[in-house]
Amino acid sequence: MHLAPFRQVLMLPRVRPLALLMFFARMPPAATGVVLTLHVAVTLGQGYGAAGLVGAAGTIGMGLGSPLMGRLIDERGLRPVLAVSVTASAAFWLGAPLMGYWTLLVTSFLVGLLGVPMMPIGRQVITALVPESRRRVALSVDSISVELSFMAGPALGVFVATKFSTNAALMFIGFTILAAGVLLYRVNPPTVHQDEVLDGPKPRLVEWMRGRLFGVLVVCVGATVCLAGMEVAAVASLERIGMQSWLGVVFFAMCAASIVGGLVYGSLRRVPSVLVLLVLLAALEIPVGLGDGNVLLLCVLLVPMNLMCAPLIAASGEHISRLAPPAARGLALGLQGSAFTVGKAIGAPIAGVAIDSGGASAGFAVAGVTGLVVAGVAWALARHRKPVASRVTMAS
Rank of each mutant, 00 (worst) to 15 (best):
V235R: 04
M394V: 15
M62F: 09
A362M: 15
L205M: 13
G358K: 12
L247M: 15
P272W: 03
S145Q: 13
A234E: 09
A168F: 06
E207V: 09
C226A: 15
P17R: 05
L94S: 01
G174A: 02
L12E: 15
L217V: 06
H384R: 15
G112A: 01
A378H: 07
A138S: 12
V221Y: 02
A314Q: 08
V260E: 02
P120C: 07
E147M: 06
V342N: 08
Q244V: 12
G261L: 05
I350E: 09
L129I: 10
V260H: 03
V279S: 04
M119I: 14
L184K: 15
A83I: 10
F172E: 04
L139G: 06
T176G: 01
V373C: 13
M171L: 08
A314P: 09
V192K: 09
I73C: 14
G343R: 02
F214C: 09
G376L: 12
G359H: 13
L110K: 00
F340K: 02
M118F: 13
G363R: 03
A88F: 00
R383W: 04
F159P: 06
G47E: 11
V276H: 06
M62Q: 15
T32P: 09
V187C: 06
V54W: 00
P154S: 10
V158D: 08
L213I: 14
F23K: 00
I126W: 00
V125A: 02
G376P: 04
H39L: 03
A41F: 03
P203F: 03
L297G: 07
G358E: 07
M394C: 05
R135C: 05
A253C: 11
T127R: 08
W102I: 00
T43E: 14
L296M: 13
R329F: 02
E318T: 14
E132M: 09
G61C: 08
T107I: 01
V374F: 01
D195M: 05
L18Q: 05
S396P: 15
I286R: 09
I259E: 02
S165L: 03
M209K: 04
A362Q: 10
V388W: 04
A228P: 03
V35R: 02
R134C: 13
S273H: 09
R270N: 09
R123D: 05
L290V: 14
H2L: 12
E75H: 13
L227I: 14
V182H: 07
V366W: 02
E285C: 14
R134G: 14
L21T: 13
E132G: 03
S108M: 08
L38M: 14
M209Q: 07
G58K: 00
L148V: 10
V160M: 03
A88L: 00
R26G: 07
V34G: 04
L312G: 07
L68P: 10
G222A: 06
W246L: 14
V187M: 10
V377M: 14
S145L: 15
A395F: 04
Q194W: 08
F24M: 12
A378M: 03
I177Y: 05
T176K: 00
E239L: 12
L156A: 15
F150Q: 13
G262K: 00
A83R: 15
A310I: 04
M209T: 10
A155F: 07
L238I: 08
T32Y: 01
Q124F: 01
K163V: 06
